[in-house]
Structures are given as C-alpha cells and as structure tokens.
Write a protein that binds this DNA or RNA. Structure first.
Length: 211
DNA sequence: TCCCCGATTAACT
DNA sequence: GTTAATCGGGGAG
C-alpha cells in the first residue's frame, strides 16, 4: 500500500486541505494493532494568517510548523487536549492543515479504549477526539508522516469536489474569518454540521425531546 | 514572576 | 445556550 508522498504535502494549504478529504490516516499502535480513519474535515492555516499559531513567529511550541512538509505538528490546548496537524507548503513557511474530523474505518476496539468507551459516532468527530482516538500527543510533534514512523496517510478514496463544502474555521476569533474549513457533505465524521452548529447528539437529552 | 486565555470537550439548564 | 475543567505559552512588568 502506498503512502501519500512528500510532494502531496509540499503544496499550498488551500490545495492540500480539500485534497485530504476522503483520504485514509493510519496509526500503528506501540502496543500492537493499528487503526484506520477516513479524514472528512480539515482546516487550512496559512502564512501571515492571524489565526495561525505561526503568525507571531517560531517558538519551541510551534517549531514543527516551520519544518518541511509531510511532518506532524501536534499542539496542546486548554490544559487537556491535543490536536493533530500536517505541515504543508515549503520548508520554513509555517503553514499547516488541522485534521478536525474523521470516520472510523478499522481498529475501532483500540480507539474505543483510548476514547473511554464513548459512542462510535463520537470517536473521531473533532480535532481533540481524533488525536485521542489515535493516541497522538506531543510525542508525535515533528514526526515524519511520509517515511517511517507509526502514523501516515494513504490515498483512500478522495471525495469529489462537488461533495466538499467550505466555510469559516471553527473557534477562530479573528474578525472576518475566511472560509478555510473544508468538510465532506453529509459525513457523520464531521464535527459540526454548519458554522457554529453542533450535530444532534443522540446520547444526550435535548430540549423539546422526551427521553 | 504574574496573568490571561486558547485551532476543545463534556455536561449542564 | 452556558460553563467548568485544566495548564502551558508568551506578553507584560
């Protein structure tokens, strides 16, 4: 099976982000076994982008973003969550694509374990959930996703452009946010149906419903 | 050193 | 719709 090559990632974030929709991300666990998920939601973070961690220059935390394409950038937020990005573009540019949502394909048992036994539909729907399901943390910051390692992309079945929607990025405060979030229309792996709207959660009681 | 707050999530009303 | 949980980064003093 072929991994997505270096050249795939050495392109502008606005090309890579939609092209990752429908691709497979594979994780080989240290304890053995592997998981496979299908990416269905991404966000692009560009150079000179006020919403990007790289905007204020290189630091120890974001150093991986300034490395060569095809490597991971993993950051820690809110004192408890990890989020996984792929570095893209040219070496030193400081641009990346955040993986925000995926559909579980294989290795569900392992992912359920890392996610604390939540419902399957909640395994990978969200950047922190995805990272947790695949047991990805700062230890993966800067690792190569093209050669070697225990985390990589495979071609999968890229989603046709007609079924990819775009809109404002989630959680970005910058005024006049740009539509650099991409997702597969109708996929249950998308973290939010539309900008600022959460999908219905069958596991929890909702106002107006009887339970 | 101090202080604020974040590319989030889960559990509330 | 609202908010607690939880902590490291980075700017200010």
């Amino acid at each position: 099976v072929t991994r997505l090559p270096r050249g795939f990632f050495e392109r502008p974030a606005l090309e890579v982000a939609p092209d990752l929709i429908g691709r497979d991300l594979v994780r080989r666990f240290p304890a053995g076994g592997r998981a496979r998920v299908r990416i269905v939601e991404t966000e692009a973070y560009l150079p000179d982008d006020p919403a990007s961690h790289a905007f204020r220059g290189r630091t120890d935390r974001n150093a991986a973003m300034f490395g060569p394409g095809g490597h991971a950038y993993v950051y820690f937020v809110y004192g408890m969550h990890h989020c996984l990005n792929v570095v893209v573009g040219r070496d030193g540019e400081g641009t990346a694509v955040l993986l925000r949502g995926a559909e579980p394909i294989a290795g569900l048992e392992a992912m359920r374990g890392f996610r604390g036994g939540v419902a399957d539909r909640l395994l990978c729907t969200g950047p922190a959930r995805l990272a947790q399901a695949l047991a990805v943390d700062r230890g993966h910051d800067g690792v190569d996703l093209v050669r070697g390692g225990d985390l990589w992309f495979e071609p999968g079945s890229p989603t046709p452009a007609a079924r990819i929607a775009r809109g404002p990025r989630v959680g970005v405060r910058a005024a006049a946010d740009v539509p650099w979030r991409f997702w597969e229309v109708g996929s249950p792996g998308v973290s939010r149906i539309g900008p600022g709207v959460s999908p219905p959660d069958p596991g929890r009681r909702r106002a107006g419903s009887r339970g």
